[in-house]
Design a protein around this nucleic acid. Structure first.
Lengths: 184, 184
DNA sequence: CGGCGTTTTGAGAGAGCTCAACATCGGTGG
DNA sequence: CCACCGATGTTGAGCTCTCTCAAAACGCCG
């Protein structure tokens, strides 16, 4: 349980283990030679971070929460001991890491797309449900815009544009893509 | 050894194992409901990919090389067997995955920065050598621009701007940051 | 010297960001 | 039941910054 502005750990601190964010956000921050802050990563609720702490004696950045946050710690020694005793647990953890890599790569590819319309399309295409055409929206559009790295205005306009061209249909909390057969 | 345009595997193929790129580039591609290609990730020489293949029976995307590529396969069953037998090997692989996650996160944060100058600064701040001020440039600036997701023109201008403001000094194959004491 | 790729600089256009105003929706309290 | 209020959603106008296309200077190698 951390108050806004509080640090979970600082650069150089001995590593404790893997953390999971239950509520709020954490920023991994490094300070460069000229004293400027460089944000390495901003983690949100539901994510685990400091995986690399398992393999390093000290932290290589600061972890600060601006929003306040609740964090759960999985102690390093217990995890490693469990992995040694139980190869299945080790495999499961590897699977978690591998999935994170995939999702991060997809996100990078997404950020490579400059056009707001194309970026929205990219997101929609990768987040369709089982029917391959329906995307359920989890939160509000402002949050989605942040996730896509767009201003909410740009996202509204992009979606309006896609809808105008008939590529999508918008509903309360879902978006349906027009597929090849144009069934929708 | 793959020819340009050749596919290493296709969506739905049974997974073989983890691949390392020795030469060239591979693109992970998925095709969306409307038949459009969506690039999940572009991997370059030196990287490993399909880590997640260890934990899935089939591939969830196509792997295609446009440039042609040489790829080494680490067979899935051998890797998993080795991990079960040898917890140290498992730990080492986890460490590789964890490091990749860190580097991907840093890259995402980099791509969140819109200003070319800020993005260059971010890169420089995170790539200083032991003295905390000197960045050795591995390749040419065009390649660096591509790595940063900028056009080479934009990067040239950004560096020129930083140099004009005295934040950096440019040399043949290195860039030196001005630190707080302005020693340079 | 000639050719090729990298580095640099210039001009113009497009697209997203910023600031701003307004609409819509849901919840709250009178 | 309705008025109010805040947050979300939407649209408008202008600006800035990068991208694109273009051209020139520079460096390297045959």
């Amino acid at each position: 349980m951390l108050a806004p502005g509080q640090a979970l750990f600082r650069l150089g601190d001995p590593t404790a283990g893997v953390h999971e964010i239950l509520r709020g956000q954490m920023q991994m921050v490094r300070v460069d030679a000229s004293g400027r802050e460089v944000v390495l990563y901003a983690a949100v609720a539901g994510e685990i971070f400091t995986e690399a702490a398992l393999f390093s004696p000290i932290y290589h950045c600061d972890a600060i929460t601006r929003t306040g946050a609740t964090v759960r710690l999985y102690p390093k020694d217990k995890l490693l001991a469990e992995f040694r005793r139980n190869p299945q647990a080790a495999e499961a953890f590897m699977a978690i890491l591998a999935r994170q890599i995939m999702s991060l790569r997809t996100r990078i590819e997404q950020r490579n797309i400059r056009s707001a319309g194309d970026r929205a399309r990219h997101f929609l295409a990768l987040n369709t449900g089982t029917d391959g055409r329906t995307v359920l929206l989890r939160g509000n559009l402002k949050d989605l815009a942040a996730e896509l790295g767009l201003t909410h205005e740009a996202l509204y306009r992009a979606l309006a544009g896609l809808a105008a061209k008939g590529e999508i249909k918008r509903f309360k909390n879902k978006i349906v893509l027009r597929d090849k057969a144009q069934l929708m």
